[in-house]
Deep mutational scan, measured.
Amino acid sequence: VKVFRALYTFEPRTPDELYFEEGDIIYITDMSDTNWWKGTSKGRTGLIPSNYVAEQ
């Protein structure tokens, strides 16, 4: 598990995607895809765009 911080707010387009706000901490559990990672924030899990976060 790696810890990342959201650089921007992300509004999901599908139920599989995770909503998060700029500054949120996201725990990444799967980075197997280059563009979409699986992450958890505020008790919810979903896909996030990798270019919206920076490693802490």
Rank of each mutant, 00 (worst) to 15 (best):
V1M: 13
V1T: 12
V1I: 13
V1F: 14
V1Y: 14
V1E: 11
V1L: 12
K2T: 09
K2H: 11
K2Y: 10
K2C: 12
K2W: 14
V3W: 11
V3F: 08
V3K: 10
V3P: 10
V3T: 11
V3S: 08
V3Y: 09
F4R: 02
F4H: 05
F4T: 04
F4V: 12
F4W: 09
F4N: 01
F4E: 01
F4I: 01
F4M: 10
R5K: 14
R5Q: 10
R5C: 09
R5S: 07
R5V: 15
A6D: 01
A6N: 01
A6H: 02
A6Y: 04
A6M: 02
A6C: 05
A6R: 01
L7D: 02
L7Y: 03
L7T: 05
L7W: 04
L7F: 03
L7H: 03
L7C: 11
L7R: 06
L7S: 04
Y8D: 04
Y8R: 14
Y8F: 12
Y8N: 08
Y8I: 08
Y8S: 08
Y8W: 11
T9G: 08
T9P: 06
T9V: 04
T9E: 04
T9D: 09
T9Y: 05
F10W: 15
F10S: 14
F10Q: 05
F10E: 00
F10T: 07
F10P: 01
F10C: 06
F10H: 13
F10R: 12
F10D: 00
E11N: 15
E11S: 12
E11P: 03
E11M: 14
E11D: 10
E11L: 15
E11Q: 14
E11H: 15
P12S: 07
P12C: 04
P12L: 05
P12T: 05
P12E: 01
P12K: 03
P12F: 06
P12D: 02
R13L: 10
R13A: 12
R13P: 05
R13K: 12
R13Q: 12
R13C: 11
R13D: 08
T14I: 08
T14Q: 11
T14V: 08
T14G: 13
T14R: 13
T14D: 08
T14C: 13
T14H: 14
P15T: 10
P15N: 10
P15G: 09
P15A: 12
P15M: 09
D16G: 11
D16E: 14
D16T: 09
D16L: 13
D16H: 11
D16F: 12
D16C: 10
E17C: 08
E17N: 03
E17M: 11
E17D: 09
E17P: 00
E17L: 08
E17W: 06
E17H: 13
E17V: 04
L18G: 00
L18S: 00
Y19F: 13
Y19C: 10
Y19E: 10
Y19V: 04
Y19G: 15
F20K: 00
F20N: 00
F20P: 02
F20S: 01
F20D: 00
F20R: 00
F20W: 01
F20G: 01
E21W: 04
E21D: 07
E22I: 12
E22P: 06
E22L: 10
G23I: 03
G23Y: 04
G23K: 02
G23P: 00
G23V: 02
G23E: 03
D24Y: 05
D24S: 05
D24V: 03
D24R: 01
D24T: 06
I25L: 14
I25A: 06
I25K: 04
I25R: 04
I25T: 10
I25F: 09
I25M: 09
I25W: 09
I25E: 08
I25P: 04
I25G: 01
I25H: 04
I26A: 00
I26N: 00
I26W: 02
I26K: 00
I26D: 00
I26M: 04
I26Y: 01
I26R: 00
I26G: 00
Y27L: 12
Y27F: 14
Y27H: 08
Y27D: 06
Y27S: 06
Y27W: 11
I28K: 00
I28W: 00
I28E: 00
I28R: 00
I28V: 14
I28A: 02
I28G: 00
T29V: 11
T29L: 14
T29G: 05
T29A: 06
T29Y: 15
T29E: 10
T29R: 05
T29I: 14
D30H: 06
D30S: 05
D30W: 04
D30A: 05
M31K: 07
M31W: 11
M31C: 13
S32K: 08
S32H: 09
S32M: 08
S32G: 08
S32I: 10
S32D: 08
D33M: 07
D33L: 07
T34Q: 14
T34G: 12
T34I: 13
T34N: 14
T34P: 15
T34S: 14
T34D: 14
N35I: 14
N35L: 15
N35C: 15
N35P: 07
W36L: 07
W36Y: 07
W36Q: 03
W36A: 03
W36C: 07
W36I: 06
W37P: 01
W37D: 01
W37R: 01
W37T: 01
W37V: 02
W37G: 00
K38H: 13
K38R: 14
K38T: 14
K38S: 09
K38I: 15
K38N: 07
K38D: 02
K38W: 14
G39T: 02
G39V: 03
G39N: 02
G39S: 01
G39I: 03
G39Y: 02
G39A: 10
T40A: 09
T40K: 09
T40D: 06
T40G: 06
T40W: 15
T40E: 13
T40R: 10
T40H: 14
T40Q: 11
S41D: 02
S41G: 04
S41Q: 05
S41R: 15
S41K: 05
S41A: 12
S41T: 14
K42D: 13
K42S: 12
K42T: 07
K42C: 11
K42R: 14
K42F: 08
G43H: 06
G43N: 08
G43E: 05
G43D: 07
G43V: 01
G43T: 05
G43Q: 04
R44F: 08
R44C: 09
T45A: 10
T45C: 10
T45W: 15
T45F: 14
T45E: 12
T45I: 10
T45V: 11
T45G: 07
T45D: 08
G46T: 01
G46E: 01
G46N: 00
G46Y: 03
G46R: 01
G46I: 02
G46K: 02
L47T: 06
L47N: 06
L47H: 05
L47C: 08
L47Y: 10
I48A: 03
I48V: 15
I48F: 15
I48W: 03
I48S: 02
I48G: 00
P49E: 03
P49S: 05
P49K: 06
P49F: 04
P49W: 05
P49H: 06
S50P: 11
S50G: 04
S50N: 04
S50A: 14
S50W: 06
S50I: 06
N51W: 15
N51Y: 09
N51H: 14
N51G: 12
N51I: 10
Y52Q: 05
Y52A: 14
Y52C: 12
Y52W: 06
Y52F: 13
V53A: 03
V53C: 04
V53M: 11
V53H: 02
A54W: 11
A54V: 15
A54Y: 13
A54H: 11
A54M: 13
A54L: 12
A54S: 13
E55M: 12
E55K: 10
E55V: 12
E55I: 12
E55R: 09
E55F: 13
E55T: 09
Q56V: 15
Q56N: 11
Q56F: 15
Q56A: 15
Q56G: 13
Q56T: 15
Q56K: 09
